[in-house]
């Protein structure tokens, strides 16, 4: 049975601790680059926490927003790919098939969120760090595009398990690495097609909004706006 996987991020709960970033790196075998390359903008973080300031000094507060691939329903990155490396799978995810990618980087230009990352170099891990690679996720070579998959390997594993046990996937059973690791449970993952799922209920909240909604990309990452942002806390 097809799902419509989505994520809700409660900005009131995000403390900007960046645990999600670390968890994502560990789960998805994301290559790291040295400081010089990172300074040139070649660091790869499928999810990253943006910090911005609200208010005037001295009444200033740091705000945080985790940004990842928005898994758009009308994704601008998909149709521009000449080799179908980027396409929409039946679960509504923006799939990225590494083997098909030839590295035109067109998808990355077309993505309004700049959520796609390019492998400028072949990935290297200092020994013995290569031993901690996740066997469920392929390692990407130089010259191809990658981005947040909503931890597709976990989704597939859970679906297989549920099928083996002859049952449906339960709400909250699939947890991408970032969701699992969030200490304040600011992130919730689930099926939008199930009206009773936690994600669906939160998505109906008055606070629900999407990033750059004016572009009509219909993201499946839904942010719950800060309630306190209008107040004087």
């Amino acid at each position: 049975m097809a799902h419509r996987w989505a994520m809700v991020i409660d900005l009131d709960r995000c403390t900007g601790c960046e645990t999600c970033m670390a968890a994502c790196h560990a789960e998805n075998n994301i290559a790291t680059v040295d400081a010089k390359q990172a300074a040139r903008g070649r660091a790869m973080h499928w999810i990253h926490v943006e910090r911005y300031w609200e208010g005037e000094f001295p009444n200033v507060r740091a705000r945080f927003q985790p940004v990842l691939c928005q898994q758009c329903d009308a994704a601008p990155c998909e149709p521009v790919c000449p080799t179908y490396a980027a396409y929409h799978n039946e679960d509504g995810l923006n799939a990225q098939v590494y083997n098909r990618c030839i590295g035109t980087r067109y998808c990355a230009n077309a993505c309004p969120y700049t959520a796609r990352y390019f492998n400028w170099w072949n990935p290297v891990w200092d020994k013995p760090l290569q031993l901690q690679l996740n066997p469920d996720v392929s390692v990407r070579e130089a010259g191809i595009m990658e981005k947040c998959t909503f931890c597709n390997q976990r989704i597939v594993a859970t679906e297989i398990q549920a099928k083996a046990e002859n049952r449906e996937v339960q709400d909250g059973e699939v947890k991408p690495a970032c969701v699992q690791s969030c200490p304040t449970t600011a992130m919730v993952f689930g099926d939008l097609d199930d009206p009773n799922s936690q994600v669906s209920r939160l998505a109906r909240s008055m606070r629900a909004t999407t990033l750059l909604s004016e572009l009509g990309t219909n993201p499946k990452v839904i942010y719950l706006e800060r309630e306190s942002s209008h107040g004087n806390d």
């Binding site: 040139r40 903008g41 070649r42 990355a108 700049t114 390019f118 400028w120 130089a142």
Partner: peptide, 15 residues
Amino acid sequence: SEGMGVAGITRPIFW
């Protein structure tokens, strides 16, 4: 052989 990193392009200037 080395990767596109030898070019000046970077994120978000992919072209």
